[in-house]
Design a protein around this nucleic acid. Structure first.
Length: 627
RNA sequence: GCCGACAUAGCUCAGCGGUAGAGCAGCUGUUUCGUAAACAGCAGGUCCUCGGUUCAAAUCCGAGUGUCGGCUCCA
């Protein structure tokens, strides 16, 4: 089925929100082309408000400082972005942290001088000549593109607008703040490589990211937000909580430790329960699959670079990057009647995708992952009802975590396979299902997959970052046509079913990564790897602790006893660090009365609860799956 | 894949041409304790790998691998 997206965003990434707005898709089955880096986009510095103007102005001031340090520096573009700004430069050598400090110093001097920003408009040709003389080929290229565009549209050449402050002049549409002195507290963050106009075939420039705010408090708050994000980083918490690890013998593939696997299994069990209830049938399909299957599906032609391919006895095989084509073999293993539909086949298959080395990142961008994948074969008249039910599934599941899913409806792109009429019907039904749900949703026109309209589901984590997780894709062509799936209708004729690819968690790996950051490692009681730690105060209380442990384990609750000779205080500290929901302290009083002193991870205390009462309480909380 | 940075004990990190360090964790002993760290001792390293420069390399240089921040890609 489709898959995860790549909007792997760190709050630290000042650019994140911008890029995700552009390409937060989730890799459907065929390529979708995005046109970006057009001349207009390059000129639009994103300055649409006071703060944005200031950010864009900061970019100019930074360019000025860079040029005074590197006189021949060629300028790319320098827009405002969420939380700050950047500017791209072609420089004679790589920048160092010392350079950043020097650039900051230069910027402060310019801000102190309070140069006014002066707008100037000249003819196109004068403008071009100006930037040619200044030795700014990238700016000239932008102007040439604008000219070509005007030519094509039969409109007159646009004038060239520039902004000057002090001696620094830049091609720019504006707007800017009145003068450099209006620029607030700023900080240069990082240097990164960035291709000119986003093309791998063009030169790589050095991009400097900076952040700037109206007040010192805002800047401090932003930096604090970055610190908080770092504290919640799932890669860091994964080590601290002993959930998983990564090793260079298998880059991009997690090794799940016992506690991580326990969490995984809890999530898997929970979604299985939903699937069983909803009439899914679980299947399991091979991981190693002959090339001819991928030729038929189109993956061989279009996705080969992302597949792990191997030879055996003169035959070519690949690790599957998706489950979808495999399910057709089960569908087609016998003649299907219209009475059999919808047929819902779920598959927790292990997928491998050979992602380029530089793109891997923790659990959110991996080479090996598992989706809570399913393929639903249904009659066209069942579509609306099924979509509605699937949206309900998403709501139910996300409710377990207190997550609020956001739906984005992607409609027919220009290049689409399948009859217009089929698309219209599908889109009408999807829209009806969304409307029936009564929750707000976004529509992204032409954002559907090549073969299918789709609903993507995003969630926002505790820091306001958005992640693509679930997806529902209505496949009109790919599985039905390419794999020649049919069912026998009421008239005894073989007709095409529709198919739906769906995943609720998306990839379990990514979902766990997102959950870890959302909860800062303090998972809800129902899915916490360790739900309670029993803490005997002294050795003589260990037997009682084992008794209580047995009671809890008999109910399949996840509990540990800390029988070390640490002091109680230290045992509590360790449990707090592991973010265990309940600490059950047992001393003389408790053993005597068969009670526990409960301390939860918020530090709240409740004494004298009987063992039975606690077992029931924890069992109830676990079954309820409350966030 | 591309640009840049980083890689030292299980973890977090210091050391940056001249005998490998700290805290935590671990082990041993003592301690048996009432809500976020008891005390003492011991052990622990191919300083990522390979090559080079040097009398001498964890330290400088090159290549490789991995990770991180970006870019690109992402059926």
């Amino acid at each position: 089925m489709g898959d995860r997206d790549e909007s792997q965003k760190q709050a630290a990434d000042a650019k994140a929100a911008v890029s995700s707005a552009v390409d937060a898709d989730e890799a459907p089955l065929f390529f979708e082309t995005l046109v970006r880096g057009s001349a207009e986009e390059l000129l639009d510095a994103g300055a649409h408000g006071d703060l944005d103007s200031m950010r864009h102005s900061s970019a100019h001031v930074m360019a000025e400082a860079v040029q005074s340090i590197f006189p021949g520096a060629q300028l790319g573009i320098g827009p405002a972005i969420e939380d700050g700004f950047y500017y791209d430069f072609l420089l004679p050598r790589p920048l160092t942290p010392d350079d950043l400090a020097a650039i900051e110093t230069g910027m402060r001097a310019s801000i102190a001088a309070d140069h006014p920003f002066v707008r100037n408009e000249v003819s196109f040709h004068e403008g071009k000549e100006l930037f040619e003389k200044m030795g700014q080929p990238f700016k000239v290229e932008i102007l040439d593109d604008l000219a070509a565009k005007a030519m094509a549209a039969g409109t007159p050449l646009p004038p060239t607008t520039t902004y000057r402050h002090g001696t620094f002049v830049d091609l720019c549409k504006g707007p800017h703040v009145a003068s450099t002195g209006k620029i607030g507290p700023f900080k240069l963050m990082t240097v990164a490589g960035a291709y000119w106009r986003g093309s791998e075939k063009r030169p790589m420039l050095q991009r400097i990211y900076g952040t700037v705010w109206s007040t010192q408090e805002d800047l401090d708050a932003y930096l604090a937000r970055l610190e908080e994000a770092k504290r919640r980083d799932h890669r860091r918490l994964g080590v601290q909580l002993d959930l998983f690890s990564f090793h260079d013998v298998s880059p991009g593939s997690a090794f799940w430790h016992p506690k991580g696997q326990r969490l995984w299994r809890t999530l898997e069990t929970a979604i299985r329960e939903v699937q069983d209830k909803r009439g899914y049938q679980e299947v399991s399909t091979p991981m190693l699959v002959h090339k001819k299957l991928w030729e038929q599906s189109g993956h061989w032609a279009n996705y080969q670079d992302n597949m792990f391919v191997m030879e055996s006895e003169g035959q070519t095989f690949s690790l599957k990057p998706m489950n979808c084509p495999l399910s057709t073999f089960i569908y087609k293993s016998k003649l299907r009647s219209y009475r059999d539909l919808p047929l819902r086949l779920s598959d927790f298959g292990r997928l491998h995708r050979n992602e380029r080395s530089g793109t891997l990142s923790g659990l959110t961008r991996v080479r090996h992952f598992v989706q809570d994948d399913a393929h639903i074969y249904l009659r066209p008249d069942q579509l609306q009802g099924e979509i509605k039910a699937l949206l309900g599934e998403v709501y139910e599941v996300y409710g377990w975590f207190g997550l609020d899913p956001k739906f984005t409806f992607g409609t027919r792109p220009d290049k689409a396979l399948g009859a217009q009429e089929l698309w219209d019907t599908a889109e009408t039904q999807i829209k009806a299902a969304l409307d029936e749900l009564g929750k707000p949703y976004r529509i992204k026109p032409k954002d559907g997959a090549f073969y299918a309209p789709k609903i993507d589901i995003q969630i926002e984590d505790a820091l306001g970052r958005e992640w693509q997780t679930a997806t529902i894709q209505v496949d009109l062509v790919m599985l039905p046509e390419r794999f020649d799936c049919t069912y026998i209708d009421e008239n005894g004729e073989a007709v095409r079913p529709m198919t739906i690819h769906r995943a609720v968690y998306g990839s379990l790996e990514r979902f766990i990564g997102v959950l870890t950051e959302h909860f800062a490692g303090a998972f809800p009681v129902w899915c916490a790897p360790v739900q309670a730690v029993v803490i005997p105060i002294a050795d003589r209380h260990v037997d009682g602790a084992r008794e209580l442990e047995a009671l809890l384990k008999a109910r399949k609750l996840r509990v540990e006893v800390d029988a070390s000779d640490n002091r109680m205080q230290n045992k509590i500290r360790l449990a707090q660090e592991q973010k265990v929901p309940y600490m059950l302290v047992l001393g003389d009083r408790e053993i005597e009365a068969k009670t526990v002193a409960i301390r939860n991870r918020a530090g709240e205390q409740e004494n004298g609860v009987t063992w039975d009462a606690f077992v029931e309480r924890l069992a109830d909380e676990t079954a309820a799956r409350r966030p």
